[in-house]
Nucleic acid binder design. Structure first.
Length: 577
DNA sequence: TTAGGGTTAG
């Protein structure tokens, strides 16, 4: 304890925890905010999401939904979880196009609830608004709701256009992989007088390629040619990608050549797919050639081209070359993105280069990179894995200083690091702090760590608190509880607990219980339990036996008479089958 | 208002 108090880790930990608790209890966590003469955005909520309110221009009464704001929102939503709530007090009708631009932004980032909320606020949404809401739902994988929105639109007498039908086509192709239904929708749209266009067809091709049906994709392509439908790079690129995924990079290159001869040249996305394929093969000479000949072939590499190349080099362990390509990117005035940073961070983490990780995160600001919590989480997770707990806290304090809002995962890593460093009660202090909303992962970490440390009083208290808390336990929680009860020698309680959560004894918890019983020398209890299961006609799972065998081996009693009793049951089961 | 590309944590 004394050694810990005087260690540099302790100093960092004390400062970080003090700062955290102060922020939680008094100030609320800081969030990034922007302001300009036209618009004023204030952080207004310290819950998981950051609520942002937008004030309209006092002179014109116009809400600042201009291009620049949308650009900034669209670039900040994914990293910093900013949510947008237009003012509720305003009862003036807002124009559909303003709503639409916002809904589109939310749709792009999978924020379907926000898009729906805007739809519901509108007095007379048009076909575009309904379509955008459907798109948001489909992107979020909420297909049934998307269909309901479509039905609602029809019931209100709003006729779907070809875009609305195309979104249904996308839903059937991408999510359900029901291509016959997609074809029926296309037929329906034609019957209703809507034209199937290059987007509709390209969507089907992309869906077929994702499902590995490249031949069918070619059939659609031929149909398009027969229909005199103009083809573009969107049409061909999914096929190029499918070829690459099948290892047929030569066929992909040939197809790109054919595109050029047909007057439909590949664009930067098509080339990026090819670069990705050559990177996977480790053929960097070919990547260099593609990049060198780009101007001649009428395209310019973008950040994704270099991110792909850098990632390929990192995966092959070519660190120096990867960093060299970062310089090339900068020379070409291509702005490195957060993805670039994450690729390079991942490489440094794999190599456990602690000083470089911290230096790189610091340098990212000099490069003008907008680093989010995800990047810090990547680095902190690795540092925690290799036992560099004080570095984890250093990065947390760095985040807070820079105004980057830690997310629940950041705290989970911090809590895990504190536990691993033996500071379980400090970790619990953060967990209990007012304002911090733990998730089930946080609970699981603490439960597990208290068990590992043999602090069963704390463990039982946490289990009891779980019942009254807002977080619902998951399968991992139950397994940890079963393990913990067995470690603490509370075998009857463990058996009763498993009975209470799983009457059918079908879950993994039974295997954990079997492990605990064998390890704790309670084979008699286990045999009674197995007997009961067999009597009830329940099938014993293979995993159950795997756990039991592992437990016997760990206990070093593989040759004991008890394991033969278990084997007898296994034999009985095998005969029965 | 709709279609194709790169990364990381859990």
């Amino acid at each position: 304890m004394a050694a810990w108090i005087s260690s540099p880790f302790a100093a960092v930990a004390r400062t970080a925890i003090k700062t955290l608790c102060f922020l939680f209890n008094v100030l609320h966590l800081p969030s990034r905010s922007w302001s300009s003469s036209r618009d004023e955005i204030n952080s207004a909520d310290a819950s998981d999401a950051v609520a942002v309110s937008i004030t309209e221009d006092p002179e014109t009464g116009i809400l600042p939904f201009g291009e620049s704001l949308l650009y900034r929102l669209s670039h900040h939503i994914p990293q910093h979880r900013h949510y947008l709530f237009p003012r509720d007090s305003d009862d003036r009708p807002r124009r559909c196009d303003r709503y639409n631009a916002l809904m589109k932004t939310f749709a792009r980032f999978g924020k379907a609830d926000e898009a729906l909320r805007l739809l519901r606020e509108m007095k007379t949404p048009n076909v575009i608004c309904y379509t955008t809401a459907m798109d948001a739902l489909v992107r979020a994988g909420r297909c049934e709701e998307a269909e309901s929105v479509f039905s609602e639109m029809i019931s209100l007498g709003i006729a779907p256009d070809s875009v609305a039908y195309s979104i249904l086509v996308k839903m059937y192709c991408f999510h359900h992989k029901r291509f016959v239904s997609a074809r029926n929708i296309i037929q329906l749209m034609v019957d209703r007088g809507c034209e199937r266009d290059v987007v509709t067809y390209s969507t089907v091709i992309a869906g077929l390629c994702r499902a590995g049906k490249v031949d069918d994709a070619f059939s659609v392509l031929n149909l398009m040619l027969k229909d005199n439908c103009m083809l573009n790079a969107h049409t061909y690129t999914p096929i190029i990608q499918a070829y690459c995924a099948l290892g047929k990079v030569d066929l992909a290159s040939e197809l790109m050549e054919k595109m050029r001869s047909l007057g439909c040249p590949p664009d930067v996305v098509s080339y990026n797919v090819l670069i990705h394929a050559f990177c996977n093969k480790g053929d960097f000479a070919e990547v260099e050639r593609i990049l060198r000949e780009s101007s001649h072939n009428g395209w310019e590499p973008d950040s994704v081209s270099y991110n792909t190349y850098i990632s390929g080099l990192c995966n092959m362990g070519m660190t120096e070359e990867a960093l060299k390509q970062l310089d090339v990117m900068l020379e070409k005035a291509l702005h490195p993105t957060e993805v670039t940073l994450n690729i390079l961070l991942g490489m440094l983490c794999r190599d456990s280069k602690i000083t470089e990780i911290i230096f790189f995160l610091a340098r990212s600001f000099e490069l003008g990179l907008d680093v989010g919590a995800a990047s810090y989480n990547t680095a902190m997770t690795r540092l925690c894995e290799i036992g560099e707990f004080s570095a984890v806290l250093k990065l947390l304090s760095d985040m807070l200083k820079k105004g980057i809002r830690p997310d629940v995962q950041t705290f989970n890593i911090v809590i895990m690091s504190l536990c691993r460093a033996g500071k379980l009660h400090k970790a619990k202090h953060i967990f209990k702090s007012k304002g911090f909303t733990p998730d089930i992962v946080t609970c699981n970490i603490l439960l597990h760590e208290f068990c590992l440390a043999g602090e069963f009083a704390e463990f039982h208290q946490l289990v009891a608190d779980l019942g009254s808390g807002q977080v619902s336990p998951d399968a991992i929680t139950y397994n940890i509880i079963v393990d913990g009860l067995c470690w603490d020698g509370k075998f009857s309680k463990a058996i009763e607990f498993v009975r209470s959560i799983d009457l059918e004894f079908k879950s993994d918890h039974v295997a954990h219980l079997a492990f605990g019983l064998v390890k704790g020398g309670r084979v008699g209890d286990l045999l009674r339990l197995l007997g009961e299961m067999i009597e009830k006609g329940l099938l014993l799972d293979v995993r159950l036996f795997e756990f039991m065998i592992q437990a016997f081996c760990k206990k070093g009693s593989c040759e004991s008479i008890e394991i033969y009793k278990i084997c007898l049951i296994l034999d009985k089961m095998l005969r029965r089958e």
